[in-house]
Design a protein around this nucleic acid. Structure first.
Length: 298
RNA sequence: GCGUCGGUGGUAGAGUGGUCAAUUACAACAGACUGUAAAUCUGUCGCCUUCGGGCUACGAAGGUUCGAAUCCUUCCCGACGCA
């Protein structure tokens, strides 16, 4: 039996993924399929009220195409890949059951791989208390602890990466050791479409988009979030727009510095996304500044 | 015009006779990533290299010295002070 098709639209930030997803969803209506529905794969758009800063698609822009996994989490709490995977897989099934084609769209490579590569996460939910105590310890010590718990994982882990060490210890403490990497065979045929922009255009797009976000009231959004109880610390953890706006609103940097920093940081983020995506040879790449003939791949 | 302080690698900014191609931070470039992923982390970062090393460098030109980014002289540039 042929596997059901799932379209994946990924790529650098600011390349117009959301628009393309909607376009494709609408285009699919004409065929035997009854159209498409979009599942976001964006680790920040899952949070409620992080709208302008994340460039979340608006109701209007959706043009009637259903969108999923937007606004499903409380920004005060950390949402994780594993949760994402569960939710997304359910959505995929539901959409297919409706006779439609799921379109996964987003720039979070890890989220996309979790689904398309069937990554199996160890059944160990985050233990906030444990993490808190572990985080206080120096990295070297954490590495020693992990070594005692699980030699194998210690061998492969990035010994200087605190976040990873903490998670590994967390798993090893409850499971006895960190299970070997496991992947399941995907139940779907994923069609991966990658969007990129040449450096110069990307930079232009990023800075233009940043200005327009500021104009749209991105700072007000952040002030509101903070008033609603979202700590500056959490805001900084959220990264990019939220991190630097938080720094600015705390008077730690000037507004000009904030804009400067954001322009370069967002560009660097785009490059980090590309390092991730480059490894995936299944992706068909398209220059977003040129007209894309999406009939070819759907 | 006189005086003082300063001019260091893409930037900021240490170094003040040898261990200095030069601490560090930022930028730049490359990469990792398995329940925080817009996060987190790593490597490279003057030029050449057979990876041993070689060459050119700390405003410019001279000089002192076995040896100078570091000391001296002159010049150029900047900041401040006095005129």
């Amino acid at each position: 039996m042929q596997k059901p098709k799932v379209i994946v639209i990924l790529g650098e930030t600011a390349t117009g993924k959301s628009d393309l997803a909607v376009k494709i969803a609408l285009r699919l209506r004409s065929g035997q399929a009854q159209g498409g529905e979009v599942i976001s794969a964006d680790s920040r758009q899952v949070y409620k009220n992080l709208d302008i800063g994340t460039g979340k698609i608006t109701k209007r822009e959706m043009l009637g195409v259903p969108h999923h996994l937007l606004d499903v989490a409380n920004p005060k709490k950390v949402f994780t890949v594993a949760e994402y995977k569960k939710l997304a897989e359910t959505k995929i099934k539901e959409i297919i059951a409706r006779g439609k084609i799921p379109i996964i769209c987003g720039g979070t490579g890890f989220y996309i791989d979790a689904i398309t590569k069937g990554i199996v996460f160890p059944e160990v939910p985050p233990n906030l208390k444990l993490r808190k105590t572990l985080e206080k310890k120096p990295t070297q010590e954490l590495f020693k602890i992990l070594k005692q718990l699980d030699k194998t994982r210690a061998k492969n882990i990035d010994a200087k990466n605190k976040v990873r060490l903490v998670r590994a210890i967390e798993i090893a403490k409850t499971l006895g050791k960190v299970p070997a990497i496991a992947q399941t065979v995907p139940e779907y045929e994923f069609i991966k479409i990658g969007l990129f922009l040449p450096e110069k255009l990307l930079k232009e797009k990023i800075s233009k988009r940043l200005l327009s976000r500021i104009k749209k009231g991105m700072l007000t959004e952040v002030k509101k979030l903070h008033k609603a109880g979202l700590s500056w610390k959490r805001m900084e953890e959220l990264g990019l727009e939220y991190r630097f706006m938080a720094l600015y609103l705390q008077n730690k940097i000037t507004k000009q510095k904030m804009v400067e920093k954001l322009n370069s940081e967002i560009y660097r983020y785009a490059k980090r996304q590309m390092t991730w995506f480059k490894r995936d040879k299944e992706i068909k790449w398209f220059d977003a500044s040129k007209k894309i003939d999406y009939n070819k791949f759907i």
